[in-house]
């Protein structure tokens, strides 16, 4: 088993599949009345969150607690972090506290890589800057697999602000490792340079959502921040929504079986219409539930053994 989960690139196909299979068992166990499993009793998991993300933190916290780990939440607000303590000093503190794993969320890309130099325990990336969010990609893959029965050969369109999206980077890496075919869709300003060479040669790029939809098994809508308008990535929310938003009309272009995903939080009316988000094709609520099972699997596989 790997020691850290810093990037979806840390996972080969066998390891990624093991995580998804383990998550499926975890999901079955979590469904029952008593949700605590003893596997990580005596282990300490620290949630080190430099960015507000209640959803992700709660998901990791629930996952660790269901495996009976001790959980310490270390958030940037109201701690020494806001007093200017460096990541290294914080890492040494966590090390002294005996953290077996540190789940880190940080606004700086690569912060988990830096942290891994300073702690002995496992480092799990819970989102770093505009780099990656590997457990989100795992829960997305899990959701696709449980809805559509497979990942190999699946056609996945990832739509929106790929340039600034850690979810997109991790998904491209993981999905292509597992045999899916990813097409990135968005205005050229929001598709990063050399993206296929950077992430996977199999990745395709399109600027035309309508052309991609009829041949997609999955369409994943990314959150688009309206601040991007000020930076001239696109002229207006209205134009963005017209060209790249998923409304009911566009959703009808999808094949019958296709699903609609969104990592949340959504801008309803911007990248996704409310009726689409609430439609039976949407997996948005499932994604949240699957997040706990996938994170249980990751924590168990990183910390469960010797």
């Amino acid at each position: 088993m790997i020691k850290h989960l810093r990037s979806a690139a840390d996972l080969d196909a066998a390891t990624a599949t093991l995580i998804l299979d383990t998550a499926a068992e975890m999901a079955a166990l979590s469904g029952r009345e008593v949700k605590k499993l003893p596997a990580l009793r005596g282990r300490t998991v620290v949630n080190l969150f430099y960015e507000d993300s209640t959803r992700t933190r709660i998901s990791f916290e629930a996952a660790a607690k269901r495996l009976s780990a001790d959980v310490i939440n270390f958030s940037a607000k109201g701690s020494s972090v806001s007093k200017g303590e460096s990541l290294k000093d914080t890492a040494l503190t966590l090390q002294a506290m005996g953290a077996d794993a540190v789940v880190i969320r940080h606004s700086a890309s690569g912060a988990p890589h830096r942290l891994a130099n300073w702690v002995d325990g496992s480092v799990v990336n819970a989102g770093d800057g505009t780099h990656e969010h590997p457990t989100q990609a795992l829960l997305d893959a899990y959701t696709m697999r449980s809805r559509l029965g497979r990942l190999d050969g699946l056609k996945v369109a990832i739509v929106g602000d790929v340039l600034h999206s850690r979810v997109a980077r991790s998904n491209v890496l993981l999905l292509t490792t597992l045999g899916a075919q990813v097409t990135l869709v968005g205005p050229p300003t929001l598709i990063p340079l050399d993206v296929a060479a950077a992430l996977s040669e199999k990745t395709q790029v399109s600027y035309d959502l309508d052309a991609v939809l009829p041949d997609s098994d999955v369409v994943m809508m990314l959150r688009v921040q309206t601040e991007r308008m000020q930076d001239s990535y696109f002229p207006s929310a209205r134009e963005y929504s017209r060209r790249y938003g998923l409304d009911m009309l566009r959703m009808r272009k999808l094949p019958e079986h296709a699903i609609v995903m969104h990592p949340g939080p959504m801008n309803r009316g911007m990248e996704i219409a409310p009726e689409v988000a609430d439609s039976p094709r949407s997996t948005i609520v499932e994604q949240v539930a699957n997040g706990v099972s996938v994170r249980m699997a990751v924590l168990y596989l990183l910390l469960g053994g010797k």
Binding site: S109, G110, D128, G129, T130, H131, R169, L193, V195, A198
Partner: peptide, 16 residues
């Protein structure tokens, strides 16, 4: 900007 804009900056999620 954090590093040269290109393949590596795209992979690392660092502003080019």
């Amino acid at each position: 900007a954090q590093m040269h804009e290109g393949e590596v900056s795209t992979r690392l999620g660092l502003t080019g």
